[in-house]
Amino acid sequence: MAEREKQERARRSDAPASPRSELCARPSALEQYRVLLMKDLRQELRTKEMLVSMGIYALLVIVVFGVALSFARPGADFLEVSGGLLWALVVFTSLLGLNRSFSHETENGCLEGLLLAPLDRGVVFLAKATSNLAFLAIVEVIAVPLYWVFFSSFAAPAASAPLIVVPLLLGSVGIAGIGTLLSTITASTRGKDVMLALLFVPVVFPLLYACVSATTAALAGGVLMEEAFATSLALAAGYDVVMLLASWVLYDFVVS
């Protein structure tokens, strides 16, 4: 207790004009990040709104794929298509989730409440991107095995198939990052659902291309694996780094 008082006195002497109440300490960015992230997770665990809708949507997309492929001949050729289909599943499901994730913030003007706090805007971005990534990851953990269950009869994937985890992870990170920025923009526009898709799909195109390539390489194995896998992953990682940095820097302009 004495320690605290001493700190308090020290703080006051070097910053006489500080308007901070004695009840408060200087908040740490890490703590704020943790608090914001926990808020999103707790809210989702309570309502399960996003996870349930994303999960069901993923299942529906798989059903549509089933119809689309019902006249395809099973065979090794399928492996070349399956990576792309898997990513179509991921992109559409994540679009749904991204649309939802920000509607919580705008519903009651909560975003403004957050912005009123002495809080770096980058922290808001990182917390939101992390929670989006978490939800996306959970849905993928459910949807990818489902996809395998439904379509494994078409063709047996190569031994390198488990490696698809890497492009999935890199892709999800990029989607969560740029998706958070774009969904923040579209949350306050008219016709936001369409707007997000319109912005999100072309912007995320390079990442998608790289991830599809890597996933296909992992599933098909062989020469393709040697040729394309590493390059694709490097490019996907590069996209992630560039876009995350850009989103992080630009986020301040989007929220204020």
Partner: peptide, 29 residues
């Protein structure tokens, strides 16, 4: 502190959780 016609509270969190969230953002001891 700002009070507006918009409550700025998360409807699916409890009153206590909402306030705790903001208290921690401000670094309340």
């Amino acid at each position: 502190g700002l009070i507006s016609h918009n409550p700025m509270l998360y409807p699916d969190l409890t009153a206590e959780e909402n306030l705790l969230l903001y208290a921690r953002l401000y670094g309340v001891r």
